[in-house]
Design a protein around this nucleic acid. Structure first.
Lengths: 229, 229
DNA sequence: CACATATCTGGTCGCTTGACCAAAAGTTTG
DNA sequence: CAAACTTTTGGTCAAGCGACCAGATATGTG
């Protein structure tokens, strides 16, 4: 099962704390190298926000990171690897924000509300990054050996929702499945609203949409038997 | 208000049937020219499906359209203009499919169901095109003078839903507004599900999601007072 | 049929791109 | 401090890109 998986990037935090290859060309990674690597990722994100996947050339990225072009290729064997590393970083950032936003919810109703509001607030505050996120996801789907990253990205994010919803849901197999369905629809809804806001910006409308989404999802949770009160 | 709007492409079917510039360089368009133009758009779509926005070079497109490279630039002053023309064609195709799919619905319940099923069926049958659609939308957002195309694309599609839902909804101002909100959420939901299917393909799961979406949207229509029965 | 115009061709141009490398500079270790 | 390494530098390269154009060809009109 764990057969040949020669992708462009390695998974972010492998279980082993050993100096498992972090993505660097193959040499051992030192302190400074790690810093430069992070700076390159940050620079890439900057360039991506400004010019999109198409316009973000290696030179622009190196420039934003204040690094010579050659250095970029020392840390990332290929441009693909760098861009996909950015996607990874974005995913981690997002999931973390979500977990913080829902901390302390009392019941599933509140949890659903907070999750959607958090998702949306993050998006509204980082619209430029949202575009990049979608661009990179599509980019991963197009890149040989990378589609699994898009998949993992999505699954991680669904799992984040499942985890936080699960706390307030009844136990049992069918309940767990319903939490999964709920999470999927929550994510689909929020993604759709973000897409709308990108294509036709109107914050007031989008906020209303999120409100409607919250109501719908709470109603769904009820009809799925996840909320009994 | 209708001030300077110097975009890359002209709107598809202007009101006047006059030989208003159709996008061709500036010369008058004849029968054969129109054919070649269409063939180029089709070729571009083909190339886009295969290689994405990034990989679809003018040469590949010309090749798919069985046309010399120079011809491409005779019909489209710039590559941007051609790609945006493809986006336009896709939008038209989609809206048309939707209208057909819901024809003959008896009430809003059925109409919502049919609309979502039609939306989804089209997407499921044309996943490659769906990616292209998203790629091009993001591309338009990035292209100077083109973001209005993404906006129009979205608005046209919302309007298509509003039109078909409106037939079965009560009249009155507030009902109309609620139909608009319903349409927005329907679109957001379907877009989100499609995005999920792209990132992590699982047709069975997506179909279930669409099912859940239908239920939720029907419930929403009810709570908005759009369905009285 | 001849003329004017619309359409197409094939070749070329200048430029950007991602990748590469030999050598310099910096850092760690014994 | 010196040897062994990691990291960075700056310059180079071939490939591929979008755009362009002068001239050949098809098309329709009087």
């Amino acid at each position: 099962m764990a057969g040949k998986r020669d992708s462009l990037v390695s998974e972010p935090e492998a279980r082993a704390p050993a100096p498992a290859a972090g993505g660097v060309t193959g040499r051992r990674a030192g302190r400074k190298a790690r810093e430069t690597r992070e700076r390159l990722i940050e620079g890439a994100l900057l360039a991506l926000c400004e010019d999109g996947v198409i316009g973000a050339t290696t030179r622009k990225i190196a420039d934003k990171a204040d690094v010579r072009l050659g250095t970029l290729h020392y840390h990332f064997e290929t441009k693909d690897a760098l861009l996909l590393a950015v996607l990874d970083a974005l995913g981690a950032r997002l999931a973390q924000t979500l977990r913080r936003g829902v901390a302390g919810s009392r019941d599933l109703d509140e949890c659903i509300e907070r999750a959607l509001l958090t998702d949306w607030a993050f998006a509204e505050d980082n619209m430029a990054i949202q575009i990049v996120q979608y661009e990179l996801t599509l980019y991963a789907l197009r890149t040989e050996g990378a589609p699994w990253m898009a998949r993992r990205q999505y699954r991680d994010y669904v799992r984040a929702h499942v985890d936080i919803f699960g706390v307030h849901a009844p136990s049992g197999r069918s309940a767990a499945e319903n939490v999964e369905r709920l999470s999927q629809l929550v994510m689909a809804g929020i993604d759709g609203v973000i897409l709308q806001e990108l294509a036709d910006p109107d914050v007031a409308r989008s906020r209303m949409a999120v409100r409607g989404l919250i109501d719908s999802m709470q109603a769904l949770a009820r009809s799925l038997g996840l909320i009994v009160a």
